[in-house]
Write a protein that binds this DNA or RNA. Structure first.
Lengths: 141, 141
DNA sequence: AGACTAGTTGATATTAAATCTCAATTTCAG
DNA sequence: CTGAAATTGAGATTTAATATCAACTAGTCT
């Protein structure tokens, strides 16, 4: 299904469905976690793909554009992505010690975005709430 | 007042209050807007300071550590900071076209953080909500 | 199917933000 | 004032991400 969406996206933009793009797409959707470009590149190599770093970066940008993948955050060690298709929207809590990411969802937050945007005459498209703090494990130390 | 807080912070950490650090501090608090390291560096030069880029970066990190300044976001063109002392907490809406930043505050959001953290046994320290979309001016085009 | 056109790839160069290096300098406690 | 310890600046370094471009495909048109 992500494959079809991506394909439609590519046709719309007059772009081509290449071997490399398919491999990146598959790899992105074969795991359900947060990943960086380099990490993805290594996984692809490991899986036998010969796609270059350049192609990984380029395809990742296309996947974000198509809405299948989201760039969650930028750290000092590069960007972090996750695929969104098949997952409902959610936000993140990040532990400042171990960098563990806890996902959460709040219906109220979604409504809040609408209200705030209306008040400021802003046309909200997406939001990301990141809560920084300490996870249960790290707090106990 | 920010000066005193910074000074106390430096003493606590056995660091020194140098000319360069004072100049950076003053420049950061002399304007009330969002800025990047390079921008700050140029303002300092313009104001007659001879502080180097390295010192600007180093001092900026100290100011964040001390709590006087916050790193709002990281864009593909570097980090964006704002000084927080003298300003109440707020979040940001960013226009995807003109990059204009609109500030807003929601008491409800503050409560929401507490509730969500309690539910997930997470010890929340801070949060940042960034709403992406289109500002009024850009939407009209 | 064959061929043409426009987009894609990969290796490498490039860019740019941020940090690191280290000799010379400055702060500040005693 | 003196000395130990921190800081500075200039430039080197690191590293994520993008740009370059000749060789190569995908997909369309006939």
């Amino acid at each position: 299904m992500p494959r079809e969406i991506f394909q439609r996206f590519l046709i719309e933009k007059r772009l081509k469905l290449t071997k490399e793009r398919i491999e990146v797409l598959n790899e992105v959707f074969s795991a359900h976690d947060h990943f960086g470009p380099e990490q993805l590149y290594l996984r692809l190599r490991n899986a036998g793909s010969k796609a270059s770093r350049a192609s990984v970066y380029r395809t990742l940008n296309l996947l974000v554009e198509s809405g299948l993948v989201e760039k969650i955050t930028r750290t000092d060690k590069g960007s972090v992505y996750e695929h969104t298709y098949g997952h409902t929207h959610h936000d993140h809590m990040v532990c400042s010690i171990c960098n563990r990411i806890v996902e959460f969802y709040s219906e109220y937050l979604e409504q809040l975005q609408d209200e705030i945007c209306k008040k400021h005459k802003f046309s909200g498209v997406s939001h990301s709430l990141e809560i920084k703090g300490y996870c249960e494990t790290c707090r106990k130390q």
